Simulated scan of single mutants.
Amino acid sequence: MKICVAFFTKQYLYKLGIFEFSLRGDAVIQFLKDMCKKPGIDCTNLLTTFTGPNCCLSPSIVNIFLDHEPQSTATKNMIHLSQMIRQGTIAMFDYMNIDENTRHYGRPTPPVYDMTRIPNSLPLYLSYGGADALSDVKDVQRLLETLDDHDGDKLVVQYRNDYAHADYVMGENAKRDIYEPLISFFKLQ
């Protein structure tokens, strides 16, 4: 992920008025589907490239994935994500212009989000995976450090060493391992 961020130049697209970041095109999707049908090609590896080594995906899920992914997002979202990864902070969007930052924030640089302002009584259920390339374990640990004072019965942390990013959405056992405990937690709140 850090390599992708280092080469991410979408801020130039944003300045040119291109506000949607999308890798989804009919030709790209058809190419991927055709490639995944070839004997000996396991397209779960395609997901692994972006998400980390998923433990719990059925090979048949890849076609369903390709019917719906990759989703587009705002170019500004991608710029913001890359800024935070490059700088190692959880800060507001940097307009890369002192006047713009001052107009938005009343200061020349964007403020860092103050995670300690999350109310201690707010129910939080955090689940993360040790193999997730998009939600780094170290980053989650940094977040958890800011939540040290959170009410114990209002914070549940679930760590799955074997889970990568796509396992949470498409894993064969995600309903049982992730979503049922999550729903039970919120029913108690």
Rank of each mutant, 00 (worst) to 15 (best):
Gly130Thr: 01
Tyr168Val: 00
Asp167Tyr: 02
Arg24Thr: 03
Thr44Met: 09
Cys4Asp: 06
Gln158Asn: 12
Leu155Arg: 02
Gln87Tyr: 08
Tyr113Ile: 09
Arg176Met: 12
Asp42Cys: 04
Asp177Pro: 06
Asp132Gln: 04
Met78Pro: 00
Met35Thr: 10
Leu182Val: 10
Leu122Phe: 13
Thr48Val: 03
Asp67Trp: 05
Tyr12Gln: 14
Cys4Asn: 05
Gly17Asp: 06
Ala166Thr: 01
Gly52Thr: 07
Pro53Met: 03
Cys4Tyr: 05
Ser127Leu: 05
Leu182Glu: 11
Thr75Pro: 10
Tyr12Phe: 14
Thr48Pro: 03
Ala133Ser: 09
Gly40Trp: 08
Tyr125His: 02
Ala27Val: 09
Cys36Ser: 13
His104Leu: 10
Pro110Arg: 13
Leu32Phe: 06
Cys55Trp: 03
Glu172Leu: 15
Leu122Ser: 11
Cys56Ala: 07
Phe50His: 07
Gly17Ile: 02
Asp162Tyr: 02
Met35Asn: 07
Asp153Cys: 04
Leu32Cys: 07
Ala174Thr: 01
Lys2Cys: 06
Met170Ser: 07
Val112Arg: 14
Ser22His: 05
Cys4Arg: 05
Ser58Asp: 15
Asp114Thr: 08
Val157Gly: 01
Asp167His: 04
Gly171Val: 00
Leu155Asn: 02
Asp34Leu: 05
Arg142Ala: 15
Ile98Val: 13
Pro108Gly: 04
Lys37Thr: 09
Lys2Gly: 03
Ala74Trp: 05
Tyr168Pro: 01
Val5Phe: 03
Val28Met: 15
Asp148Ile: 10
Arg103Val: 03
Lys10Thr: 11
Leu47Glu: 03
Phe185Asp: 01
Tyr159Val: 00
Leu144Trp: 04
Met1Asn: 11
Ala164Thr: 02
Leu155Met: 02
Cys36Leu: 10
Ala166Cys: 12
Ala91Asn: 11
Phe8Thr: 13
Ser127Val: 09
Glu145Lys: 11
Glu145Ser: 08
Ile61His: 12
Pro111Gln: 08
Leu66Ser: 07
Asn101Leu: 10
Lys15Gly: 06
Ala6Arg: 08
Pro123Leu: 09
Gln87Asp: 14
Leu124Thr: 05
Tyr128Leu: 02
Lys175Asn: 09
Asp162Leu: 05
Asn173Asp: 12
Tyr128Asp: 00
Val137Glu: 10
Ile183Asn: 10
His150Asn: 10
Gly152Pro: 03
Arg86Glu: 10
Ala91His: 13
Tyr14Cys: 02
Gly25Cys: 06
Leu124Ala: 08
His104Cys: 15
Glu172Asp: 12
Gln30Leu: 11
His104Lys: 15
Thr51Tyr: 03
Phe31Gly: 10
Asn161Pro: 01
Val157Ser: 00
Ile178Asp: 08
Tyr159Met: 00
Asp67Lys: 12
Phe186Lys: 13
Thr109Trp: 02
Tyr168Lys: 00
Val140His: 12
Ile61Gln: 13
Leu13Asn: 11
Lys187Arg: 11
Met92Gln: 15
Gln11Asn: 14
Leu182Arg: 01
Tyr163Gly: 07
Gly106Pro: 09
Val62Gln: 03
Gln158Asp: 13
Met96Glu: 15
Cys56Lys: 07
Leu47His: 04
Val156Met: 06
Ile79Thr: 07
Met84Tyr: 00
Ser135Ala: 08
